[in-house]
Design a protein around this nucleic acid. Structure first.
Length: 347
DNA sequence: CTTAATAGTTAGGCGTTAGC
DNA sequence: GCTAACGCCTAACTATTAAG
């Protein structure tokens, strides 16, 4: 269970328990995918420059965090941000090196590609020692696409020349907290129960504020509603409207805003508690389904084992019978031959 | 003023090795 | 076998700059 219901001071809130420790390849792929979606989302938005002016800027990394959570990558926005920074550092080093290698290849200079190098050789050249090809390729895909999109948007774009512009209406009312769809579609319940392979291409998140994401193939980011947010409280640090550096500073208060009226607070807390119970139910259902699937899988394996065993037994019996028959045949032939010998012998 | 991007730095976890 | 020392790796923190 990664979501905790907080009930302090009478307000229900959902606390995210972020995973710690090293990033797995799968988590990294999810993050890259989230960034890819983020780029695409922003490009769409920058093309649609007629709306969203003077709206509060969206917290991009919170969006990325939400996306990652929808893919069972339980990291905070800071973790995502940091990991992305580190990834980009490594990626750029490798990319630069690979470019140099490619240039020198024309000049007949013998220089091994990054992937052909040993770990210590990489270290000598001040390159990341263990960047995975899989991750590099995926990063290249995303980063180069981003570059191309940026150029395209700059060329095509009236006021939306900057890919960083965040003016789509569907984020305009988004508070500085993470969000969930208040009523989870059945699909999400399924998603929660099954980790999703990151390599499979995903449909784009919806850019429209009114329309919920369309019913989609099995793999789809969870629909995030920005119109009806469900606040979460981050378990590591309070991450609200401060700058990244300030956000991380501990002991500096919780950074809560004071602008909400009592009415709003009431409405929000009601919505939160409703949403929380829905989410809790969804998670419970998904866990039950997962349990059931696990049991099915086990019984299936057992059945398969039994079938294998009986097959082996039948084969063994068949082989024994065959050996027996061959022995008998050999004996008969031998007996026949000796009988013939005796009968043909001179008297 | 804010967020995003970048880069330098620190801290903690983990494996290896030498000494007892 | 135990433990301290060491080095490496990576997440996390911090500062700075750019752009809107």
């Amino acid at each position: 269970m990664h979501l905790m219901m907080d009930d302090q001071g009478g307000n229900n809130a959902v606390t995210r328990e972020y995973r710690k420790g090293n990033w797995t390849v799968n988590e990294t792929m999810v993050l890259i995918e989230a960034k890819e979606m983020d780029y695409e989302r922003r490009m769409k938005r920058s093309g649609d420059h007629s709306e969203g002016r003077n709206k509060p800027t969206e917290l991009r990394w919170k969006w990325v965090e939400d996306y990652c959570w929808g893919k069972c990558c339980l990291r905070s926005q800071n973790q995502c941000n940091d990991k992305w920074d580190n990834l980009m550092r490594d990626y750029k080093k490798v990319r630069e090196y690979q470019r140099k290698v490619a240039e020198r290849e024309g000049n007949d200079s013998k220089q091994r590609s990054y992937w052909e190098m040993e770990k210590n050789e990489r270290k000598e050249k001040n390159l990341p020692s263990n960047m995975l090809r899989q991750i590099y390729d995926r990063l290249e895909e995303v980063v180069e696409k981003k570059g191309a999109q940026t150029v395209a948007a700059t060329a095509g774009g009236g006021g939306g020349s900057d890919p960083n512009i965040t003016n789509l209406p569907y984020v305009m009312d988004r508070p500085m907290v993470s969000t969930f769809q208040p009523s989870l579609p059945p699909l999400l319940q399924h998603q929660l129960s099954a980790p999703i392979p990151a390599a499979i291409p995903l449909p784009l998140p919806q850019a429209s504020p009114q329309l919920p994401p369309p019913p989609a193939p099995i793999i789809q980011p969870p629909p995030l509603s920005y119109a009806q947010p469900l606040p979460t409280i981050d378990s590591d640090t309070s991450e609200h409207s401060d700058s990244p550096a300030k956000r991380r500073r501990r002991g500096g208060g919780n950074g809560e805003g004071t602008s909400g009226t009592a009415n709003n607070i009431n409405e929000v807390s009601t919505a939160i508690s409703r949403s929380a119970s829905i989410i809790a139910e969804a998670i419970q259902a998904s866990e039950e389904r997962e349990e059931r699937r696990h049991r099915d899988l086990l019984s299936f394996h057992e059945r398969r084992l039994k079938i294998e065993e009986s097959k082996t037994e039948i084969n063994k019996k068949g082989m024994d019978g065959l050996v027996d028959a061959i022995n008998k045949l050999a004996n008969s032939i031998f007996a026949l031959a000796s009988h013939k010998n005796q009968s043909s012998a001179p008297k």
